[in-house]
Write a protein that binds this DNA or RNA. Structure first.
Lengths: 122, 122
DNA sequence: TGCTTTACCTACAAAGAAGTATGTAAAATG
DNA sequence: CATTTTACATACTTCTTTGTAGGTAAAGCA
């Protein structure tokens, strides 16, 4: 059986990657990162607005994925020092660039829906 | 807290999906499906050839992901009734279509490598 | 007849991602 | 001064994915 572990292609933040695709998935993979990025495509949103924009997300996932997206430089977190302290999240240039990729995944999904004759309400 | 579970957007093979992107990830997501698809882009390969083409994959993952890709119609499995029984895997038209998407993910990864100044050997 | 090759296949364990439930601080509001 | 709202934060559990470590069947070869 295959137990060989060869040389990694590259490292990022202590993790080993064998292909650029694996790296991409660290930035936009998982259930919630892409929905968050898509929600921000028209401009900055507050925490509560994101929660409304993404119907099924829990606080835990929203907050942890926002932190993850911040750490990788996909979104910016801006605190406005107003009377009710206000926080807004927006896409960085890198985040905006990822929209093309996410759109490609979205279009393939729509193609699948047609091809596989999956019923979509509305 | 958010315990609301609303209406699903659509169903496929008993699973619930809220966006076309989620559906796409069922077809090409996970660690190994995209490397397998990329390995087949130049033409059909046998099981053993795929194993050589994808250095770090185990038998378990190669075989289970080949089955998954077959089930979703991304690849075809052809058995040649020759003296040493021979099996070849190749992309279906749907599998070929996914190459565009995978390429988009690949290019974004390369962009990240440049942007984040990640060292890549060779 | 025993050994090798090809193409699988499975039980079990470990690791990682996501969900459940609950808590908190600071300011506005009644 | 008690209550509500906003924006988080964490402990714990469950679910899913991946890895480890084996095994098998069929045919050809020595």
């Amino acid at each position: 059986m295959n137990t060989f572990r060869g040389m990694a292609d590259f490292k990022y933040q202590g993790r080993i990657y064998y292909t650029p695709i694996e790296l991409t998935m660290t930035f936009i993979g998982g259930t919630w990162k892409m929905p968050i990025i898509l929600s921000l495509r028209k401009g900055a949103l507050r925490y509560g607005e994101l929660k409304k924009a993404i119907p099924h997300i829990t606080d835990k996932m929203l907050f942890s994925q926002l932190r993850a997206l911040e750490e990788t430089g996909m979104i910016d977190r801006k605190i406005y020092k107003e009377k009710p302290p206000r926080v807004a999240y927006k896409l960085t240039p890198l985040g905006k660039r990822s929209l093309k990729v996410i759109d490609s995944l979205h279009r393939f999904g729509k193609h699948l829906i047609k091809q596989k004759s999956i019923a979509v309400p509305k």
